[in-house]
């Protein structure tokens, strides 16, 4: 433990091994490959605001997938994120239209998101519905509420100049937009919670072995509920931003987002079996999806191919994650062998 790297080669080897055992290796390589393809095959990639727009367009899914990752880690799944996001966007827009200040509107939206998450959590842990079914019902419920409230007519006329900044249509400082800032802060906070706090440890524990967690005195149900509340919060934040970016809130604003968020989280290495996942992975997963779609758009492939590409990337990501797992296993074994030979 105390031995310091003695030479440059050793340092490089250590770094190299660190990378090889990194659980996000799969998605990182995928992202790199796509970036290389874009850089060499498509000169337009660097033109104008392309990269900037690309990042901007990935933010919503990114934020959703951060929450989704936490739910997946704790052994659940949240199909309601898209619908809850749309509902929260609707709430923010409606409250704004009533003349309330931005801040109040946001608080209302976030409270709705948390409440939806809480309800998800209660349905799963208290009523005992399977995660899939409980959150599916929430999907129907949240989208239904928005439909009823809007009667199918998009909400408009709530945009203020500040909201343009919130939506990322106007930058905040320099090239940094508010959504980017929010995504980064959110990723940092959730990442910190997962790796450094007791709650984070408990998310992993509950998803990996609920019985053992309970025997160790962890309030399993409450921990799962908190994961859903976190996901609801993320959905609310995404909704607030999307309402700004989109200029209007149609009733079907959130349709399909759950699939994208789950995809991004899985591409980032989260496991549906629980106990595995990383915030960085989710962020990169969302970027990978956006990048791939961007590439095919630039390459002149009709946008109708988007979905096909998402499907193919999912499979590629699984393969990449599988390969990175192999690399990790091999590296760890090699390192263990080296350590034991040093001991001897």
């Amino acid at each position: 433990m105390t031995s310091k790297p003695r030479s440059a080669t050793e340092t490089i080897r250590n770094l190299w091994e660190r990378l090889l055992v990194d659980p996000t290796l799969g998605v990182i390589s995928l992202l790199l490959i796509f970036a290389l393809i874009a850089a060499f095959a498509l000169p337009v990639f660097y033109a104008g605001n392309n990269i900037y727009n690309l990042v901007g367009s990935s933010i919503t899914v990114m934020i959703l997938s951060i929450g989704m990752t936490v739910v997946l880690i704790s052994g659940g799944i949240d199909l309601s994120v898209g619908a809850v996001m749309a509902l929260c966007a609707g709430v923010a827009a409606t409250v704004l239209k009533m003349g309330a200040p931005l801040f109040v509107a946001f608080v209302c939206a976030i409270l709705v998101g948390i409440a939806a998450g809480l309800l998800n959590g209660l349905l799963v842990t208290r009523v005992g519905l399977p995660d899939f079914i409980a959150t599916l019902a929430m999907l129907g419920f949240a989208s239904g509420v928005l439909y009823i409230a809007t009667q199918g007519v998009p909400i408009i006329g709530y945009m203020t100049s500040e909201y343009y900044i919130v939506g990322g249509l106007d930058p905040l400082v320099g090239p940094v937009t508010f959504p980017i800032l929010v995504a980064v802060v959110l990723a940092l906070i959730v990442g910190w919670v997962l790796s450094r706090t007791k709650l984070g440890t408990h998310f992993f524990a509950v998803g990996s072995n609920a019985v053992a967690s309970r025997q160790s005195g962890i309030p399993v149900r409450w921990v799962k509920t908190q994961a859903y509340m976190l996901s609801g919060t993320c959905a609310a934040v995404a909704g607030i931003i999307l309402a700004g970016r989109n200029n209007n809130v149609p009733a079907d604003l959130g349709t399909g987002y759950e699939i994208q968020a789950i995809s991004a989280a899985i591409i980032g290495g989260a496991s549906l079996m629980g106990g595995r996942g990383r915030v960085l992975g989710a962020v990169l997963g969302a970027l990978t999806l956006a990048l791939a779609i961007n590439i095919i758009n630039l390459a002149g492939v009709p946008s109708s191919f988007q979905k096909i590409v998402i499907g193919v990337i999912l499979i590629l990501a699984v393969i990449a994650n599988y390969l990175s797992e192999l690399a990790r296993g091999a590296t760890q074994r090699r390192r263990a062998k080296r350590l034991s030979s040093i001991d001897a």
Binding site: T201, H202, F204, A205, N209, V211, A212, G217, G275, R276
Partner: peptide, 23 residues
């Protein structure tokens, strides 16, 4: 208590398992 069925959390490190719930 050491339970009849193994009751460790596979995803966590040994240290985190030992202190699980008592961090």
């Amino acid at each position: 208590t050491i339970y009849q069925e193994l009751s460790l959390v596979p995803a966590l490190s040994v240290l985190d398992n030992i202190f699980l719930g008592r961090e």
